[in-house]
């Protein structure tokens, strides 16, 4: 069972209180009606599926209820950091020396 730091509660808590909520930093377009089919497909379906550092959303559903973002390494399953919704993507390379979104061996 993972331990996850909720940036709203300021506590590191058991995974059972949290729910995964998909890839982070995929903003809903301001005016969906103006989106081309290709743009809408990109928003609706395309996800990065990285082997490495993945930016993703979690919800502290059985806690404070807030959605927040996390950087998690999909190979080690280790959280590098979590941060509040709306905050910019942190610089993981500066934090840890691991390049974000880069496949193993390509570093």
């Amino acid at each position: 069972m993972l331990l996850i730091h909720c940036p709203y509660c300021g506590e590191t808590l058991p995974e059972t209180e949290f729910a995964y909520a998909g890839e982070a930093h995929i903003a809903r377009p301001e005016n969906p009606s103006e989106q081309t089919d290709a743009e809408w497909v990109e928003y609706l379906f395309m996800r990065s599926n990285v082997k490495g550092v993945h930016f993703e959303r979690w919800r502290h559903i059985h806690g404070c209820g807030r959605f927040f973002n996390a950087a998690r390494h999909t190979v080690t399953d280790k959280f590098l950091t979590t941060y509040k919704a709306g905050e910019p993507r942190p610089d993981i390379e500066a934090l840890t020396g691991i390049k974000a979104g880069v496949k193993e061996g390509e570093k």
């Binding site: 069972m1 506590e11 808590l13 058991p14 059972t16 209180e17 059985h62 806690g63 404070c64 209820g65």
Partner: peptide, 14 residues
Amino acid sequence: ARDLSRIGPGQGAR
């Protein structure tokens, strides 16, 4: 699953 020692008297959580 939480560490209950971190919840003192007068505190609570969902």
